[in-house]
Amino acid sequence: MDFENIYIEEENNLATITINRPSKLNALNQRTIKELHVAFKELDEDPEIKVIIVTGSGEKAFVAGADISEFANFSVKEGRQLAAIGQEKLFDFVENLTTPVIAAINGFALGGGLELAMACHFRIANSNARMGLPEVSLGVIPGYGGTQRLPQLIGKGRAMEMIMTAGMIDADKAFAYGLVNHVVSPEELLPVCAKIGSRISNNSSVAIKYAIKAVNAGFRYDADGFSAEIDAFGTCFGTDDFKEGTSAFLDKRKADFPGS
């Protein structure tokens, strides 16, 4: 697929996806969602890529929401389809990706932008970042998982306040709420993401895949997180990465994981 609204850079087992619609503050339209789906899928299938970072182009926005002009005249049926397809192709897809995804929030992360960041496995923001779910000010609610993931991350009461007021919080408050893991200067954002990504890439990609699955199971209504953990833990014993990791520990050397 030829990308119009994103570009990808790869270095040292890390891939950075940049959403590149600066004139629209990187707002998510259907084309961009489709491109992101393809990019995440291809990178997840690349054994050389151990960590994916997603960010926005420019200094103003990570993603400043969805492209409202695309759906302002949608019917009820079309609205439901918009949310269902978006969740399947991007937001749920990213959350369940087996390659770790870090959101590098470099400015406004509003509406669908915050929902994309929350679908990532964790978030790092620069000090200029602003986050919010303003959908109720447009007569609609978050439709890409925001009503579910925000309470999981910051608690029901705080999530209710953010959603009902349609207000924004700054990076420091997002850190205090547990919405982001770190707040850094704008210049440090991508280097810090790359540094953490490098630390992740030194570990077993197979074990990380199963850890992601087990953690996610604990937040699903139709799964038992503890059972998922037991199953994933046992499965790890049959992998080459487990053999290499335990052998390296006993031999007092650095592990060289084969990724299988």
Rank of each mutant, 00 (worst) to 15 (best):
V184R: 01
L153C: 02
A232N: 12
P142K: 00
E161H: 08
G155N: 05
N73F: 08
L36Y: 09
C120T: 09
E42K: 02
D170S: 07
M1E: 00
R80Q: 15
T16N: 01
K195G: 03
T147L: 07
E161Y: 01
G86I: 02
I52V: 15
A84Y: 06
P100Q: 08
A109E: 06
S69R: 14
V192M: 15
G178L: 14
L114Y: 14
I52T: 05
I163M: 13
E188R: 13
T16V: 12
T32Y: 06
F242L: 08
A159D: 11
E188P: 05
I208R: 03
D222I: 04
D241T: 06
F242P: 11
A214V: 10
F62V: 01
A61L: 05
F257G: 03
A117Y: 09
I52E: 04
A232I: 04
K24D: 15
S198L: 10
N128L: 10
V215A: 00
N13H: 13
A129M: 04
L138W: 12
G113E: 13
A211P: 00
D241W: 11
G132L: 07
V183H: 01
I200Y: 13
I154C: 11
E4A: 07
Y210G: 01
C193F: 08
P22E: 07
A232C: 07
G259K: 09
L90G: 03
G56E: 11
F74L: 10
T99H: 11
L90V: 11
M131C: 04
G225H: 08
S57M: 15
